[in-house]
């Protein structure tokens, strides 16, 4: 019995008070993937995979990570040890260098900046962008797996006012259309992020979270 309790869960969700932890844990539980919330250095360093959630304002999230002393252990886990990480919603934006929403530096794991969504004044499109959009996978990535229903587009639920702009086109894992083409998923090796909410996107989200949780760390080779 003791050996069992020492087996690491498959997924550790970083709980720093800023994010929809409950919804993510519910979804992993539904998928039969063992997931726990971790809120300290020990939990982060012991994780075999990390999910970095986040909602709300960029600076508030970064400051909370700083105040709780988690930035060092996140860097140690993800950059030094290569622990796979998935940023969700604001958690994806935190992977960037900086955001127009705040002054604090991001984690800087992806060469990218975050800007407010701008729509043409004449357009009926609103900000925040709230709702379901078709998503087009791009480049080499392991988040979206081809399915039998190839004609059915990937579809995810979004709820955000900011979007990420990557310096390297190869880091873009998916795009969507909102007045123009915007990046909504990134992947650079074992570091990935999605702007939408897979934990709220029915079977599309289930498929993505399962593909990520079962993938071998980095990019699936073509």
């Amino acid at each position: 019995m003791q050996a069992l309790s020492e087996v690491q869960p498959e997924v550790s969700v970083v709980d720093y008070g800023v994010g929809n932890i409950g919804a993510l844990l519910n979804m992993f539980d539904h998928l039969g993937i063992e997931a726990v919330a971790v809120s300290d250095e020990r939990g982060i360093l012991a994780a075999s995979r990390l999910v970095l959630p986040g909602i709300g304002a960029f600076d508030r999230a970064m400051r909370t990570l700083m105040d709780r002393g988690l930035i060092g252990s996140l860097n140690e886990a993800v950059i030094a040890r290569g622990t796979p990480v998935l940023g969700v919603c604001l958690g994806m934006q935190l992977l960037a260098r900086r955001s127009a929403e705040g002054q604090l530096a991001g984690l800087g794991w992806i060469a990218a900046d975050v800007l407010r969504i701008e729509v043409p004044p004449s357009s009926a499109l609103k900000v925040p962008h709230i709702g379901w959009s078709d998503v087009r996978p791009a480049g080499v990535q392991s988040l979206f797996i081809p399915t039998d229903t190839a004609d059915e587009p990937e579809r995810f639920y979004f709820d955000h006012s900011y979007h990420m702009i990557c310096e390297e086109a190869s880091d873009i894992a998916a795009t969507f259309e909102y007045g123009r083409t915007l990046c909504c998923a990134v992947q650079r090796g074992h570091i990935a992020g999605v702007q939408f909410h897979p934990e709220k996107s029915h079977r599309f989200g289930m498929r993505l979270l399962e593909a990520w949780a079962r993938s071998q760390g980095g990019v699936t080779q073509p």
Binding site: G22, A23, N26, M27, D29, H30, Y157, D159, H197, E199, K200, S201, H202, G205, M206
Partner: peptide
Amino acid sequence: MKELASECFMPL
């Protein structure tokens, strides 16, 4: 709501 939300795999 905790019980109910755990059944919701859609935006809530």
